[in-house]
Design a protein around this nucleic acid. Structure first.
Lengths: 191, 191
DNA sequence: ATAGACATGTAAGGGGTTACATGATTTA
DNA sequence: TAAATCATGTAACCCCTTACATGTCTAT
């Protein structure tokens, strides 16, 4: 028996289907709305992957009419797919990889006028606060869904965990913006 | 006058040289030791970039003997280079992009035995705690360097800001590991 | 002598984003 | 009737990592 080896993004696509049957369009939307803070994929990644998964027997699809728009190919995970996913998920994870333009720019903040930097940090703080509010809305939506029995306990846990992390990341980023402002301000009188 | 447009990683390379003259080898080491939590680049990225920067007049190099090993090409930023860097750094930053295998795996934690998940979270927590300790050592080193006058105030601010963020990220990740453990444990008796 | 750190580069291949191509349905 | 959303897919290109190639110096 050969183990199915995929890349991280492919496992993310498979996970999305495992959390609940979805079309390629749904999966891409899920990435944008709930997964973008830890993994992302567009149509160009999703559709070919689902096609390959089906060839390998990891998922199957049903063609269903859409409420509005053309027909949908709704994919569900198979036993084999779930087995492959859980074998991978049960292994230790590698370190997160972040590419953060804000911090690269911050490397030069000592060379910029403090007023400029404070304004940049204020704007950044606001954007992170908006995203935090968005995550909190998602969290309330998830709790409601759970109360209504619209989601299995197993799927709830997974989504909840990623949401908790999204909220934690944004809270800590907001804190950084504030501490950075303090550092830059404390320096100002010394000039 | 044409504005110099580079990619984020290239600005990071330029920033590294702006914080203090470095060889390509030094820049690659800097990425690995102090910048890997927000941006990364290996030799394959660094050497060609420094060559191009010199052609464009953003940096200049001096060939100096090494204390041990072959000759070093030590690059310094030019006026033009600093101008290009500060023009870019003074603009608002785009959102950070993270690829976190841990969270993709966490999507399936509801489908795994709680004991397995708790062990995975314990190991993850430990790794993040080690990295946190490493960042704190870097922080102490930076403060010492500053006290000794081994670094300019301008360069200190930039490095300090990225270090603060590295510490914040690790602290919040450790917190997540603990909260995730609680969530998984609280669920166990219900099975 | 041999391993490991120091040092500079090139080349190839794989991964991932973005743009393109097409079309149905609903709402303003 | 035009725009927005729903829906499925392909193709090209760019980025980036990884492996390769080469060589010095120090310490064991």
């Amino acid at each position: 028996m050969r183990r199915t080896i995929l890349q991280m993004v492919e496992y993310a696509i498979l996970s999305s289907v495992a959390l609940g049957p979805k079309s390629g369009y749904d999966v891409a939307g899920w990435f944008e709305r709930v997964a973008s803070h830890f993994c992302s994929a567009g149509y160009g990644r999703v559709y070919p992957a689902l096609g390959r998964f089906e060839e390998e027997g990891l998922v199957v699809h049903e063609t269903l009419p859409s409420e509005r728009g053309p027909e949908r190919k709704v994919y569900s995970i198979t036993g084999k797919g779930k087995e492959a996913l859980l074998a991978w998920s049960g292994e230790p994870a590698s370190e997160p990889k972040t590419r953060d333009e804000q911090l690269v720019k911050a490397l030069s903040y000592g060379f910029l006028p403090p007023e400029t930097v404070l304004e940049l940090l204020r704007v950044a703080r606001e954007l992170h606060a908006e995203k935090l509010a968005y995550f909190r809305r998602l969290e309330r939506g998830l709790e409601k869904q759970r109360a209504d029995g619209g989601i299995s306990d197993d799927a709830y846990i997974g989504t909840r965990l990623t949401l908790m992390r999204g909220i934690g990341v944004k809270e800590s980023y907001i804190k950084w913006c504030e501490e950075a402002s303090t550092l830059v301000t404390s320096r100002e009188p010394l000039r």
